[in-house]
């Protein structure tokens, strides 16, 4: 299980759900600067898309090793942020031809010899930030469930690595109660390909740097005594063993087995690391 090699005939599916509610306007630290969470998350997803695209690049060009849908949710809407409603799942060859532009990211780097340098990175952009209104997370998860279910049922995806769903949020759902969210997440986690069940990772981010982040919780005991933290834990998939080594390294804590694909009060660097672990860490596109 969770060992299918990714190929053009057996591509992998990523679905990224992004909370675009009003609270995403709050500032957070990203690359040493304070910017709205919505901008930081959008840039993090752009970085992940470019990484996936880079890993699909071969001598002759881009190979369609993966499909990706990015859905934003705010107010009462779930909106595609790449592609469109009629074509949610974008492939590398389509992404390569559809970037919206580029932005220069500056990063302060302290070198081993003590010097401080500014690195400039020309980041490709596919999605733009938005923040406003409520948090229709239930509707977003339901949309993801329907689309992923359809994808898994396609005959040519039977041998594919199971889809991975990232749900990035900073708050609670405004359109569903705990029981509804639990039931739906169980349905999502029950979807599968021949190689295993769909992985649902719920990543709660926070701009409050005084709170202790919980990353890939190994048990409920690691969580703060908060109902919502426990709900996210229970909604999230247990991470298969193939991810454990990288998870332990990220957590900096030896041992642990039963990691959940979730975070609570995570910073932006944690979010990037978690998404990398959930996507490129297992070298599935390395054939």
């Amino acid at each position: 299980m969770y060992s299918a090699r990714i190929s053009r005939s057996n591509p992998i599916l990523f679905v990224i759900l992004i909370d675009q509610s009003g609270s995403m306007e709050e500032l957070t630290r990203f690359n040493g600067k304070l910017i709205p969470k919505s901008e930081a998350v959008a840039m993090t997803v752009n970085i992940l898309i470019s990484e996936l695209l880079y890993r699909s690049r071969r001598e002759e060009g881009y190979r369609d090793y993966f499909e990706i849908a990015v859905l934003g949710y705010h107010g009462q809407q779930v909106v595609p942020m790449v592609g469109d409603a009629g074509h949610l799942f974008m492939r590398p060859s389509e992404l390569a031809a559809s970037e919206l532009g580029r932005v220069k990211l500056e990063k302060e780097r302290r070198l081993p010899d003590g010097r401080t340098m500014i690195s400039v990175v020309d980041q490709r952009v596919w999605i733009r930030p938005y923040a406003g209104d409520k948090t229709p997370m239930y509707a977003a998860l339901l949309k993801a469930y329907e689309e992923v279910k359809r994808w898994c049922q396609q005959k040519n995806h039977h041998n594919s690595y199971p889809p991975v769903i990232f749900n990035i949020t900073d708050g609670e759902a405004s359109d569903g109660n705990e029981a509804m969210l639990m039931e739906l997440s169980e349905q999502i986690k029950g979807l599968s390909t021949g190689d295993g069940h769909v992985l649902l990772m719920n990543m709660h981010i926070s701009s409050d740097q005084t709170t202790r982040p919980v990353i890939f919780a190994a048990s409920e005991a690691e969580l703060p005594d908060q109902r919502y933290a426990r709900l996210l834990y229970q909604m999230s998939s247990p991470m298969p063993a193939v991810y454990h080594e990288n998870i332990r390294r990220l957590r900096g804590i030896p041992g642990g087995e039963a990691f959940r694909g979730m975070s609570y009060n995570a910073a932006m660097t944690d979010l990037i690391s978690m998404m990398n672990i959930g996507s490129v860490s297992v070298n599935l596109m390395d054939n």
Partner: peptide, 19 residues
């Protein structure tokens, strides 16, 4: 942690002090 192609490209476009 995970080393990415993005990490490497950053170094190659900002090579001073990196080799």
């Amino acid at each position: 942690m995970v080393c990415t192609v993005n990490n490497i490209i950053e170094t190659l476009y900002n090579p001073e002090g990196r080799f």
